[in-house]
């Protein structure tokens, strides 16, 4: 037995590097999408509202890469302009509900009994609404439009984050390192800031990343039903809805915003997955 080396755990270096590469690639794609949505008005080759019935329903050509719709508007310009509503709105929405919901959840977990009960029952109340019915009700009371669609989605989506962060905070709070930190002289706010937030941010971030795709779909869905963006505002969901009867004859008009939704949702979902893998401390070296 002498001279035998004790086996050591080898760190999975190759996997880690691959993960980093994948993360960088997807983050770049997501960033490009975000920049495109933010600066969409400068990127459109044509005015997305400009109608020219002489070239209505034109197939893709060198002048109009994605063809034109039934009013002769350039589809590429409309898809790019639509990213503002679709991507940017979903991102703002998810950012808001993730922060708001998580704060409520942490507050519930760290505070006394009655506040926890009150806030959690309120969250249950909002969770009990079917999303579409709630959006319909909001549209009926406040009228349609992107803002009200976002409001309706925010109202029914924050409890998910409150529940998640509450359960995560409770689990973390029961671990000995929280007690050790308390005995090291940390106050309640320091405990939350230094130990709770960093440890629960992973699952919340991943949920939020995956939610960007879902919210994009839901917003598009609401617009498709006529409860979100109103024509002629370019929004991917409503663009698909407007032109769905052209699918058999001029498929590019419907497929262009459809593909835009598919691609963006996929990028954000993959990014969410990769971020989760990356944040797992066991994958770090």
């Amino acid at each position: 037995m002498t001279g035998q080396r004790i086996p050591t755990v080898r760190k999975p270096k190759v996997r880690k590097n691959n993960l980093r590469l994948k993360l960088a690639f997807l983050a770049c794609l997501a960033l490009l999408l975000l920049l495109a949505s933010f600066f969409s008005e400068y990127l459109t080759p044509y005015d997305p509202y400009l109608q020219d019935l002489t070239i209505a329903k034109a197939p893709p050509s060198s002048e109009h890469w994605l063809g034109t719709d039934r009013y002769g508007r350039d589809m590429l310009s409309r898809v790019i302009a639509g990213s503002r509503t679709s991507i940017f709105a979903s991102l703002l929405l998810v950012g808001f509900i993730a922060v708001f919901g998580s704060l409520i959840g942490i507050l519930c977990a760290r505070s006394g009994k009655w506040l926890d009960t009150f806030l959690m029952r309120t969250a249950d109340l909002f969770l009990a609404f079917p999303g579409l019915v709630f959006a319909l009700a909001v549209a009926a009371v406040l009228g349609g439009g992107v803002h009200n669609a976002i409001f309706a989605l925010a109202a029914i989506s924050w409890p998910k984050y409150a529940r998640l962060s509450r359960s995560q905070t409770l689990a973390i709070s029961a671990l000995p390192f929280m007690q050790a930190a308390r005995m090291g002289g940390c106050g309640s706010l320091q405990l939350v800031w230094r130990h709770v937030l960093p440890n629960i941010s992973g699952p919340i971030l991943v949920t939020a990343m995956l939610d960007i795709g879902t919210m994009m779909m839901e917003l598009a869905g609401l617009s498709f039903l006529g409860l979100g963006a109103k024509p002629p505002i370019p929004e991917w969901g409503s663009m698909m809805s407007e032109t769905r009867n052209l699918l058999p004859t001029q498929p590019w008009i419907t497929l262009a915003p459809g593909f835009a939704i598919f691609f963006s949702v996929m990028v954000f979902n993959l990014l969410g997955d990769t971020v989760r893998d990356y944040l797992d401390p066991k994958n770090r070296g």
Binding site: L175, P176, Q179, A180, A181, M183, R194, N199, P281
Partner: peptide, 15 residues
């Protein structure tokens, strides 16, 4: 007054 806990690994923040 200080304390040492039963599970050493869990008594340190994993991050």
């Amino acid at each position: 007054m200080q304390m040492v806990f039963q599970n050493p690994v869990e008594s340190f923040d994993p991050r």
